[in-house]
């Protein structure tokens, strides 16, 4: 093999991370096999982070190497769904020495803590991260109640 890992010095953290990754990869492979025989796909790729304030939410998604036009974003009620494809590398006439990056179709659905205004949802893509800004539905915004003094 041309290129190989040289992090041979035993580092328990690294080792732990490696095992974790390996487990995720196996899980993914298992899901793929299950999907092939019609058992459905587990929703775990791509990973998402959720941020909120009183005005709304920001969902960030790790999508390196995915063309923004290959991602469908839909919002129904509180549910945000992402669908898309990460194209595999052209494999004609090449030999893989290492293959760790995921590819293929993905579907990811997450429940937001509040309803949002679907018409005002915005998305931008930068450096392989998708940022989705979801303004909170007007009727669900926290309201400040003025206490009247008599």
């Amino acid at each position: 093999m041309l290129l190989r890992d040289i992090e041979r010095v035993f580092d328990p953290w690294r080792e732990f991370e490696r095992i974790e990754r390996e487990l995720r990869r196996m899980e993914k492979e298992m899901d793929r096999l299950l999907a092939e025989v019609g058992f459905g796909v587990r929703e775990e790729y791509p990973p998402v982070n959720l941020w909120t304030n009183e005005e709304g939410a920001i969902v960030t998604v790790e999508l390196p190497g995915v063309e923004p036009e290959d991602v469908d974003i839909t919002v129904v009620g509180r549910r945000l769904t992402l669908k898309g494809t990460r194209k595999p590398l052209a494999s004609d006439g090449v030999r893989f020495h290492l293959r760790e990056r995921w590819d293929g179709d993905f579907t990811r659905s997450i429940e937001l803590p509040f309803r949002v205004e679907p018409a005002k949802v915005e998305a931008k893509y930068r450096n392989g991260i998708l940022y989705i800004t979801l303004p909170r539905a007007e009727e669900e915004k926290p309201k400040k109640i003025t206490v009247q003094t008599s």
Partner: peptide
Amino acid sequence: RPDVDIIETDTEYHL
């Protein structure tokens, strides 16, 4: 640790 793919063509390696 980033995920890495390495392929070999006739004339090059791509990482």
